[in-house]
Design a protein around this nucleic acid. Structure first.
Lengths: 203, 203
DNA sequence: AATTTAGGTTAGTGGCTATTAACCGTGGTG
DNA sequence: CACCACGGTTAATAGCCACTAACCTAAATT
């Protein structure tokens, strides 16, 4: 008699484990964003999640696995989110506006992870780095496809460059908001970033 | 009879020393940009400059001092350069355009150092971090002053945010161009970044 | 109720790495 | 030409840190 192989039963322990794992990933996002992957020890990581040191190995196979889980997660969220946004919108112009709004939301609400993603991508082991880069590329292509519908005559190299630049613009605030202090006029910042992105992307 | 205290004599050794120091800083810029400050050992640093290990201590008091020299240098270059640009231009609109061109030039020609600056700033020891932040703040204020002349009615908080976002836009390419490969259509990229920056900064 | 399993703990252990020590050849100085 | 400061070398040294071992408690399972 076996338990189901994929669908794990929801026992008290498995819930505790899941929330512990989530706490570890939260701590990792914060600490890696502040000090960089190589500036954070497993002990730091554990104790930030209320557990000390080697307990981390009950949840991840090693330090690299923590970074992988974090960055693969965020890359998938971005790609999936963008696909949902495009699927839900009617015309390309609306799609682009929604993509901008989506990325601004993401950058403002998950600033830590954004920061880790473009700070410590190169610390991933080869295989996972390729996976994350592939997900990022596909996310970029969602944008480029949308832009291409709006400007069929512009070559895709230029559209990719434009998209990169807009990402830099939107992701500039994670570099600004240090530590995780609350931003005073968040709505104003959101609107400003959306307006600037829109202006920049329209040639 | 003493040698001049400030103006060192130009002997063969002092020239060799200066160029060795420059080589070390170059190597540091490249390696730190690729792997991050904590991912590079003193041995790596030395051997990338054609010298091995502890010889670095003949030029810098320690690893932190290498990072400090690098980041203080770039911050000063940016501030001084921007002051020169503003001093040389006639009207605020021309000044802003020249500031954009200056920052684009800098980001494209010194991508490594730009990347280190917003990746490993927090690895500086407290005192030097404050100095670099102060220089960066003054650089930002040069931009904000120029923008304020063009839009006297807009509050400076908003202008600071706009400036940050434009920096993010322009500095996006260092994150893109990996390792230091040559960029195909550099002039086109330069023009694109300038145009997008201008569009974004004009509300 | 007995047993197993899982998640936690505290001690190693081994490797890496920043820094120092001790030593050496040579360019610059007198 | 004798001397010395300097930039280099290789060999310790010491501390940090990822990871493993051994053990313990209690939830799940039977």
């Amino acid at each position: 008699m076996e338990v189901l192989p994929v669908e794990d039963r929801l026992t008290g322990r498995s819930i505790a484990k899941a929330s512990r794992r989530a706490a570890l990933l939260d701590a990792a996002a914060q600490l890696f964003a502040e000090r960089g992957y190589n500036g954070v020890s497993i002990e730091d990581l554990g104790s930030a999640a209320g557990v000390s040191g080697p307990a981390v190995y009950r949840h991840f196979s090693g330090k690299p696995a923590v970074l992988s889980a974090l960055l693969i997660g965020v890359s998938e969220d971005l790609l999936d989110g963008s696909l949902a946004v495009v699927a839900a919108s009617t015309d390309p112009e609306a799609a682009l506006k929604d993509l901008i709004r989506f990325q601004v939301d993401f950058a403002l609400s998950k600033a830590n992870v954004i920061r880790v993603q473009d700070r410590d991508l190169s610390s991933l082991q080869r295989e996972d780095e390729q996976l994350v880069r592939s997900l990022q590329r596909r996310y970029l292509e969602v944008w480029v496809d949308t832009l291409a519908e709006l400007s069929p005559d512009v070559d895709r190299v230029r559209l990719r460059r434009k998209t990169h630049a807009v990402f830099g613009l939107i992701n500039s605030t994670p570099h600004t908001t240090h530590g995780g202090r609350a931003v005073p006029d968040l709505a104003g910042l959101r609107g400003l970033l959306e307006d600037m992105s829109w202006a920049a992307v329209r040639i």
